[in-house]
Nucleic acid binder design. Structure first.
Length: 502
RNA sequence: GCCUCGGUAGUUUAGUCCGGAUAAGAAUACCGGCCUCUCAAGCCGGGGAUCGCGGGUUCAAAUCCCGCCCGAGGCACCA
């Protein structure tokens, strides 16, 4: 991690400020990881701030898990998964009075005004760089209207509170941007409305915009360094007008580019829509780029952290490298993941055997752990499954830890016959393919949930050795020659797995 | 259209502010070898970047200046 500009040991305060209108995803986790990491490096403070000031267009989601004890706990759980424990937690909807107070001060400095212009009117004026008649009203008049707005009067006129900036600023959106707007609490009730009402003494009508609330909080919370995506660059300019008016020092701001994600869905509206339509199983669906989904699939938090932190913080778009993420995760998982045989596209094959065979399967190539089971022929045959892609007609093959066979197509089945030489050396010499297999008696159905952008389908079906029934849920294993998976559990006698990576 | 930011191996990235220290370091991917009852991992070795293009300043430029090209973002009563 490169050093932080203007950072002093013990004095760095960073914040992660998501909108709790959905669970965290791989995109916003970057700000979180950078903020947390730098706070720890400099032994400073890391603050979590929930920015829920728009019940109209960004309706907050209060809970996702059904055992949450506090509001927006699902966000905190995502942070805790990364071991990013916040030193302080704030919710902006608890702080309306604070924003009102700062606003009163700004009114008295003649930096704010209540504006009754319609959207159309103001946009015309803005483009022309003209001011409206409300801009130069007196302090008392403005304050009187402001108090009325807080109480919910005057709202039918749809007024807003604007901050005086530079009417000739090249970016028109900077010109007298909106600090507060009225949101109808009946039409758009905030999910925390009762908590808000109880400290406010009435329903909330007047809500600060992001730029206002965020700036006030950044200052009041003593934030020294802000990490934000580069789409916020314009906001840094807008916010500078509050710092100037209040005579506050603006924190150092580091802008980074958006993370581009091939395949996985990141858009909150698409996610919520997809869940409603049943396209996704929930926020943890494997097709989504939510942290919940990554966790479900079995990625380790430290792998994601490393991959993202290695990208640095340049203000350009960065494609997250799946290759790198997989490689990092694989290095951690590989030594602990036991190997099991998994046969997708299973085709039944009858092995001609005249006596029982004890099979000893090594669980991991670098460890001497085994499990054993016995193959007992019935009517001279043992039924096994092979991957249809491994089967040709009339060919020799080494079935791993079983023996060398010649497989031949019969009228309505495949038959496997033991070769004279059963040695591994023979298989190596003849360059036989070493393939995995499962026996009918010692296997169960397996379902692997896999993101649809990997194989083009969401579920892979096959047969897996029934020894997996002994595994604890959330155990990492490798399907030999296929890919790594996370064992999720047994559902109705079928083993459920989540695809991780190859 | 206007404004802002970026462009270093296939990919991600260090170095750019304060020009020179091995004529560019790392990770991942790729190629070869060893090992292995996985075409993985591990170990050993290897190739790969005229630092977007053109010009200028300088004894010396990825680093400074100018022009161009390409990419991304912003231009909300969203965060």
């Amino acid at each position: 991690m490169p050093p932080l500009e203007g950072a002093e040991q013990g004095k760095v305060i960073t914040r992660f400020a998501p909108n709790p209108d959905g669970p965290l995803h791989i995109g916003n986790i970057r700000a979180m990881l950078l903020s947390h990491e730098y706070a720890r490096i400099y032994q400073g403070k890391f603050i979590l701030r929930l920015e829920d000031t728009d019940p109209r267009t960004k309706k907050p989601i209060l809970h996702i898990y059904n055992d949450e004890k506090r509001d927006y706990e699902y966000i905190l759980r995502d942070l805790e998964w990364f071991e990013a424990y916040p030193d302080e937690i704030y919710i902006q909807s608890d702080r309306l009075k604070i924003y009102y107070d700062v606003a009163r001060e700004l009114f008295s400095k003649e930096a704010l005004y209540v504006c009754f212009c319609s959207k159309e009117e103001i946009s015309k004026k803005r483009v022309a760089g003209l001011q409206c008649e409300h801009r130069n009203r007196g302090i008392e008049e403005n304050l009187r209207d402001f108090e009325a707005l807080i109480q919910g009067s005057l709202i039918e006129q749809q007024p807003v509170v604007r901050i005086k900036t530079d009417l000739s600023h090249p970016d028109p959106s900077v010109r007298d941007w909106i600090a507060f707007r009225v949101i109808d609490p009946v039409k758009y009730p905030h999910p925390r409305i009762s908590a808000i009402e109880s400290y406010l003494g009435h329903k909330p009508y007047l809500w600060p915009t992001y730029n206002f609330a965020s700036t006030i909080d950044d200052h009041l919370m003593g934030i020294t360094h802000i990490f934000r995506a580069k789409e916020h660059m314009g906001n840094t300019v807008k916010q500078s007008f509050i710092y100037k008016a209040m005579n506050w020092i603006q924190p150092f701001t580091i802008h980074y580019g958006r993370i581009k994600f091939e395949g996985a869905v990141l858009s909150k509206s698409k996610i919520i829509d997809g869940i409603k339509k049943g396209i996704y199983e929930g926020f943890q669906d494997v097709d989504l780029a939510t942290i919940m989904a990554f966790r479900m699939r079995g990625f380790l938090a430290k792998s994601i952290k490393q991959a993202i932190l290695e990208m640095g913080a340049k203000p350009v778009e960065a494609k997250i490298s799946f290759e790198t993420l997989h490689a990092i995760n694989r290095k951690i998982i590989d030594p602990i993941a036991d190997r099991y045989f998994f046969v997708p596209n299973p085709v039944s094959v009858k092995l001609r055997l005249d006596q029982r065979v004890l099979i000893r399967r090594q669980l991991h190539p670098s460890r001497n752990d085994f499990f054993e089971f016995e193959l007992s022929p019935k009517n001279g045959y043992v039924d096994i499954f092979l991957d249809s892609r491994d089967i040709q007609d009339n060919f020799e093959v080494r079935l791993i830890e079983l023996g060398n066979f010649r497989i031949t197509r019969r009228e309505n089945f495949y038959e496997g016959i033991l070769l004279g030489d059963q040695s591994l050396e023979y298989a190596r010499e003849k360059k036989l393919r070493l393939i995995q297999w499962v026996s009918e008696d010692h296997s169960i159905n397996a379902v692997v949930k896999v993101p649809s952008y990997i194989f083009g389908k969401k579920n892979i079906y096959g047969k897996v050795e029934d020894h997996v029934k002994n595994l604890k849920p959330n155990t990492f294993i490798q399907f030999v020659r296929n890919f790594f998976v996370k064992f999720h559990g047994i559902d109705n006698k079928d083993a459920i797995f989540y695809y991780l990576h190859d």
